[in-house]
Design a protein around this nucleic acid. Sequence first.
DNA 1: TTGCCTTTGAAGAAG
DNA 2: CTTCTTCAAAGGCAA
Length: 549
Amino acid sequence: MPQLNGGGGDDLGANDEMISFKDEGEQEEKISENVSAERDLDDVKSSLVNESENNSSSSDSEQAERRPQTRAHSESYEKTRDYFSEALRRQQDGGFFKSPHYPGYPFLMIPDLTNPYLSNGSLSPTARTSNKVPVVQHGHHVHPLTPLITYSNEHFSPGTPPSHLSPEILDPKTGIPRTPHPSELSPYYPLSPGAVGSIAHPLSWFMQQQGQPMYSIPPGGFRHPYPALAMNASMSSLVSSRFSPHMVTPPPHSLHQTGIPHPAIVSPAIKQEPGSDNISPSMHAKSPVPPKKEEDKKPHIKKPLNAFMLYMKEMRAKVVAECTLKESAAINQILGRRWHSLSREEQAKYYELARKERQLHSQLYPGWSARDNYGKRKKRKRDNKADSKPEDFSIRNKKQCVQYLPSEKMCDSPASSHGSMLDSPATPSAALASPAAPAATHSEQAQPLSLTTKPEGRMHHHFSLPGKASGSSSSSSSSSSSSSQPTISVPLASSGSHPSTPILTRPIPFTSLHHSMLSPPSPFHQAALHSHHALFQSQPLSLVTKPTE
DNA sequence: TTGCCTTTGAAGAAG
DNA sequence: CTTCTTCAAAGGCAA
């Protein structure tokens, strides 16, 4: 990502961004102060707050060091992994994310990755409960992002040594072979010639370290077909465990034709945490599709994770470690705030990863549709909100806030506990988006109320641009230009965007245009919008009400 | 045992 | 074309 070049050297446009960030930082600091105040009220735990927000490298590193000691059972590989990744990133970045690239890949290879899953084949229940002392399994460096993606490993031939790297990687966008980014070039690039054909695994660079599959592995999935590999070297397992020699080309339909469990595939019936002893039928079913009812047998292919989900996976452990909180709901609130506080570049990383993820997913499961998973879950009762009047929901939200807020105070960072529910998206992102941001942020704080509403209606939707605009990953590569809405393609590249980040090049809805000049496109539209919101703080209320309507 | 809660983003469905 | 709904992860909690 060029944009990041120079860390500080961010060039063009960077200034604005930088400023915005600063504002954010300031804001955050303010918040921190506030938090501090609150801290007094809170018990010692609150002490954690600071670092969570600041992410002080020192604290992280300290923690990192400590954790490894306890590694014995670490909680979940993932968490530790995340934690490390974070720590790593800090180290590399010096506490601040400067390099857009995924520098850490070198570490990937570190064999250490003792993957609990691999070792046991399952996570010990205790592990889950042992959050209090987040343990790190491996003290090695892990790139923050690497851990996230693992899935699809299976598609690569196990037999292929990691070293087997494809020299060239097809540029998703252009389809033209390109020299992989250094970060991308991992010695272990798992592509097997035959395997995914010419398609390089978009996430391969990412996957190497991954001990845990991004998608929950189907029961069978975990059971590595090649136990030896799995059990043995974490590394090999990582790389090869999921690779399947069988995998030649993506199945035309959702079901993995190969019958090889993919991390993303979960048998509905068997859906379970990785490591469960149960061997899924599908697993056994390595044999070509079992002749049972399609439904029963049909493996559940999970949706690819979006940027935020990726971020969550990475950061959750860290947040958990910093906080005493264990409830995901609370943690997620914090993560949501942090997400907004991320710099564009940082978010861009995740968007890019998510894009690749989707791309890969689509390649693996060409026929798969998100709709396939509809109804798998029980359903959400969120419906309530629809019923409830604005008032009601506000109240309801309030309750929620209260419920989780405490924790946030303790742990959360930046953004604010103050704002309480406000996660105000606007905050960080807005800041990024526009110079006006500062004011905006300020205003937000002033009007925390708006936050309460947010949950209800997902305000961003209202602002949001054409849904597809931001998204369509796959299309993104194609340069989604077909947005009916007036859009301007803003090559943020000029502002230093990563070349490979389609996001930046996406067309920006006209509505956010003015912001676009300053801010990143699509994924960030929201932010821009939020900033917008800030600008119009005079009418924040409207936002609130809208959702209800 | 099961679903809820909570977050953002993507995608599909519905209007 | 816009809006709404569902699902993705995750783990404590409630029923």
